[in-house]
Design a protein around this nucleic acid. Structure first.
Lengths: 366, 366
DNA sequence: AATCTTCGCGCAACCGATTGCGTAACGTCC
DNA sequence: GGACGTTACGCAATCGGTTGCGCGAAGATT
């Protein structure tokens, strides 16, 4: 594809390259007349400055890298990421920053920075291994603009855009208390994942503050089946908890399935509260905790942009909020059902199906 | 960030820039000894070739642009896109093609090509307006490697990676017929959208081939509420159709809601089949048609890569397949319920597991 | 021993845009 | 009319890599 260059324009106008360059970039050292001539020709010839050449002289590409963990398939299964990405794009686009995305396990982003392909990076803190984190810290010290979304496993010198999970979790627990619940169970995320531990602690603290007795804690693996198995276990042990709290929505979905399979429903038999507010949550009526993912993404991008143009940037704080839906509503039928003598099928579930041999997830070395 | 350049290496070794360059790129005009020396220094000095400089001389960036319609939020709500992106990335990454993504309504991608920021483009055919399509065709003729996923509204000279929707739709209709259905209704997408028309026709043809009487066709707007309203209309007109077919899953979800609100359920009262197999479909047990999105994405990326390196590339054909789930299962209770006059809680079988989908293999026209 | 090949490497010209500096043309003021 | 300032533009170096060409030296050929 033969592209129009400054040289071409210069020759056709009988002026120097530099003149054309300056005319196009509003340099006031150029007379209004020539500027107009240059602009007209540039426009009709379809001139577009070559990005590589610009990057070469400016020593920067104007591109921001986006580091997603694992495969895109995994990432986008969770709308949290979609909103995040949307928030990032909503700031990046008007600001003129193209986004280079890496959905690989290999740290391509390091090469991208070293090759000058990108000027900055947005990464998800919770998905970084320690070596990756240190790699990024090194690159940041070398001058790259790097921002993390969500805290990494270790404390870091990198800028982090995060969100306080506690408010949403506290509202949820208060809500349960108000609805008359007293005993709850928690299905937390993987015990070895720092972000999951933090969330688990938040649930525990909030439950205590709302005078809810946390009867049992199960560690799931953040998957649908993990939640399903956890729910089966809860049913099998005939837990007395009237509400189940989850580390994420996906596990809550699994629990809903398990309930359905056992002939139970939420909120009639047990209240359920998830975390993330992924898209199906609304469809299934799952009560959950919502993160302002869009804002988080936008803020991260603003932060990177500010760092690149050496503009001051003040962090804004973000909080979660509780989204009450059907699964935490006080079941209106409960009273009447108990009065009538209700359904009979409260008997034990077939143990071969109901009791998983081993708790799901890598519960190695409890 | 002061970066190591060829010049730096050359000076420290007392050789010319060109020598270093050739040594690093396996030019056999360089003795094994110097090559080794150069390589060692390059490695320990942490040399990384500057992407912009390379792009400048090569007149190509080695980057592929990914054009997503509307906002990322919208796009990734549909796992179809996630899988697509995953498929693209799965080919792009090993091939060394970074991806520049555009999730904007504005055709930034045109500038990207003109500025030499990207060498090729992958776009979603169905989301392109006519002017955008023509713009892309012009750019392709100017030498850009452009591939569309899914057919655009108008016939085009661009390369298109598409998928035959009919097989999946035909299997679905056969499935309904086998389950004893004879009268069906169709809630199609917008009448003005070409892709929706094509899908509508496919449903009609398949229904006829399966000897299903297509009793009614409603045009929805591809939204949840659109499907809900369509279902209300069907209920209100006391349609005799025992199965409802939908242009997409979202509308089918709306219909499920409408049924629920009317005190009906699927498949007990009516069978429901969607299209797309978006993520909540599995959770809600919605029978639907699945596209091999991962393969489509991978194929599109392969095609772009082949075009860039002027390698021959043969298109492979892709087909949809039917995913039977609960909403199209013959209600097991129906007979017994009618016989005993009451509900027997046999617990719903998970049809996703119980009825394996048609193997998604290359069922290329036997 | 003289000539012809290779081989190994340096020189310099690119790629396309930016920018410091120099300078011709013009007008101004004494 | 000469010194001076301003305006408008050209020259050339630069960013970092790539590549055609040339040249000296070593080895092969006769």
């Amino acid at each position: 594809m033969r592209k129009v260059t400054l040289q071409d324009l210069a020759e056709r106008l009988g002026v120097a390259r530099s003149t054309v360059s300056r005319a196009l970039r509003d340099d006031m050292q150029i007379s209004a007349a020539t500027r107009a001539r240059v602009r007209r020709l540039a426009h009709e010839a379809g001139y577009h400055p070559n990005a590589a050449a610009r990057a070469l002289t400016h020593r920067s590409s104007g591109v921001i890298g986006l580091v997603l963990p694992r495969s895109a398939r995994f990432v986008f299964a969770n709308p949290y990421f979609s909103d995040l990405l949307d928030g990032i794009a909503s700031v990046a686009e008007p600001a003129g920053f193209p986004l280079l995305v890496s959905a690989s396990r290999r740290p391509d982003y390091a090469r991208w920075l070293q090759e000058g392909r990108v000027d900055g990076l947005i990464a998800l803190g919770s998905s970084l291994s320690q070596v990756e984190l240190e790699l990024l810290e090194g690159l940041a010290q070398a001058g790259a603009a790097i921002v993390l979304i969500g805290p990494p496993a270790q404390p870091t010198s990198l800028r982090v855009v995060a969100c306080d999970e506690r408010p949403g979790i506290e509202r949820a627990c208060e809500h349960l208390q108000g609805a008359g619940h007293t005993r709850v169970a928690l299905v937390a995320g993987p015990a070895h994942a720092p972000y999951a531990r933090a969330r688990e602690r938040a649930w525990q603290d909030a439950a205590k503050r709302a005078h809810l007795t946390l009867e049992q804690v199960i560690h799931g693996d953040d998957t649908f089946d993990g939640g399903r198995n956890a729910a089966k276990a809860l049913l099998a042990t005939s837990s007395t908890a009237s509400a189940w709290l989850f580390g994420n929505d996906l596990m809550a979905f699994g629990a809903l399935r398990a309930l359905d399979e056992a002939g139970r429903t939420s909120p009639d038999d047990v209240a359920i509260i998830g975390f993330d507010d992924v898209m199906p949550a609304a469809l299934l009526g799952l009560s959950t905790i919502h993160q302002p993912s869009h804002e988080l993404g936008a803020d991260a991008m603003r932060s990177v942009a500010a760092e690149l143009r050496r503009t001051p940037h003040t962090d804004t704080s973000h909080v979660t909020y509780f989204v009450p839906r059907r699964t935490s509503a006080v079941p209106p039928e409960r009273a009447s059902r108990e009065a009538e003598g209700g359904r009979i099928d409260t008997g034990p579930i077939d143990p071969t199906v109901a009791i998983p041999p081993v708790p799901p997830g890598r519960t190695r070395r409890s």
